[in-house]
C-alpha cells in the first residue's frame, strides 16, 4: 500500500472540514440545519470545471471566483427565503423544509448548467475528473498541498476573526442572542448576512477543490451532505472548533475505514461507503448528542470540581 490513499484521505478530510465549518456557522446563525449546504459545493465544482474546460486555464485561478459565487448564492438564499420567513415568525421546522426545497431548486439549476455545456459546447459535463489540470510536486498531486494549506489558513483566519476582531465578536454575540446584541448596537442583519456569505463562500471553495482529485457530477454536492452533517454533529453542532475536528475525523474515517473494510472483509464493502458517516451520526446521537463539545464540557466540569464551601460559611458566621 502506498501513501496515495492517505494523501487522498487527507485531501478529502480537509475539504470536508471547510464544509463542516460552514454548516456549523449556519446552524449558529440561523438555528437550522441547512440541507442546501452541500449543493453550494456543487457550484464550486462547476466553477472549477468552467475555468478548466471553458477558459482553458489552471483551475486554481477559479478559487476566489468560487468563494464569491458561493457567498453570493448564500446571501441570495438568506435574503430571499430564510430572512423573509424568519421575519414572518416561521419556526425552525418550516425553515429547514425551505432549505430542502432550495436544495432541489439549486440542484436542478446546476444540472441545467451542465446540460448547457453538453448542448452548446459538445463537452461532457455530468461526470468528470480534472486530475490532468493539476500540477505535481514530486509524485504527489498539488491539490493535496493546496487543500491542506487552504483549510489551515481558513482555520487560523477564522480563529483570528472570531476572537480578535470586532466583527467576529459581533458574530458570536449574534449567534448567542440576537436581541441582546442588537440592544448593544450591533447591526444583526448585516452580521447575519456576513455569516451567510462566509458559509456559502467556504462551501463553494471546498467544492472547487474537489474535481481535482475525485470524480464529480452535479449530484456530488447534494450527496456529500450526510458527511457534512455527521462532521458537524460529531463536533457538537454548536462549536466551530468542534466542527474542525469532527469534519476532519469523518473525512479520514470515511476513506480509511472503507479501505480497511475492503482489505479485511472484501471488495464489496466499498459500496457501503456512504453508510460510514451515517453510522457515526447515529452512534454520536446514541452516546452523547452534544458530540465532542459535550465530552469537552463534561471533562472541564470534572477538572474544575466544585470545592466544598463550608469553611467560608463558617468564616462568614464569625
Amino acid at each position: 500500500m502506498d501513501l496515495t490513499i492517505l494523501f487522498m484521505a487527507i485531501t478529502y478530510a480537509s475539504e470536508l472540514t471547510l464544509l463542516s465549518i460552514g454548516f456549523t456557522l449556519t446552524y449558529l446563525t440561523a438555528k437550522i440545519p441547512n440541507f442546501a449546504h452541500g449543493t453550494y459545493a456543487g457550484y464550486g465544482i462547476y466553477v472549477t470545471y468552467t475555468f478548466a474546460k471553458f477558459f482553458g486555464i489552471s483551475p486554481y485561478y477559479g478559487l476566489p471566483v468560487a468563494f464569491l459565487v458561493g457567498g453570493l448564492i448564500s446571501v441570495i438564499v438568506f435574503k430571499l427565503v430564510i430572512s423573509t420567513l424568519g421575519k414572518m415568525g416561521s419556526g425552525a421546522i418550516v425553515l429547514t423544509i425551505a432549505t430542502l426545497a432550495i436544495q432541489i431548486f439549486l440542484g436542478a439549476i446546476l444540472y441545467i448548467y451542465a446540460y448547457a455545456f453538453i448542448a452548446f459546447f459538445k463537452q461532457y459535463a455530468t461526470g468528470f475528473m480534472l486530475k490532468d489540470w493539476d500540477f505535481k510536486i514530486g509524485d504527489v498531486s498539488g491539490i493535496f498541498f493546496v487543500s491542506i494549506g487552504i483549510s489551515l489558513i481558513t482555520v487560523i483566519a477564522l480563529h483570528y476573526l472570531l476572537t480578535k476582531t470586532k466583527l467576529g465578536i459581533a458574530m458570536r454575540a449574534t449567534a448567542e442572542d440576537p436581541e441582546l446584541s442588537s440592544v448593544l448596537g450591533i447591526n444583526t442583519t448585516n452580521v447575519q448576512t456576513f455569516s451567510w456569505f462566509l458559509t456559502g463562500g467556504l462551501a463553494c471553495l471546498a467544492g472547487s477543490l474537489m474535481p481535482l482529485w475525485f470524480q464529480c457530477s452535479p449530484m456530488t454536492g447534494s450527496g456529500i451532505i450526510t458527511s457534512i452533517m455527521a462532521g458537524s454533529l460529531l463536533g457538537g453542532f454548536e462549536s466551530v472548533y468542534g466542527a474542525i475536528i469532527g469534519g476532519f475525523t469523518i473525512g479520514m474515517a470515511e476513506v480509511l475505514l472503507t479501505l480497511a473494510g475492503q482489505l479485511v472483509i472484501g471488495n464489496w464493502f466499498g459500496e457501503y461507503r456512504p453508510l460510514i458517516p451515517m453510522a457515526f451520526l447515529i452512534i454520536v446521537l446514541l452516546i452523547e448528542p452534544r458530540g465532542l463539545q459535550g465530552f469537552y464540557e463534561n471533562w472541564q466540569k470534572r477538572k474544575v470540581a466544585p470545592k466544598p464551601k463550608e469553611p467560608e460559611a463558617k468564616e462568614a458566621k464569625k
Binding site: I97, A98, A101, F105, A108, Y111, Y115
Partner: peptide, 12 residues
Amino acid sequence: YMEDIILGGLLV
C-alpha cells in the same frame, strides 16, 4: 429539472 425548479420554487 424544469419540474424540480417549478416544484422547489412553489414550496418557498
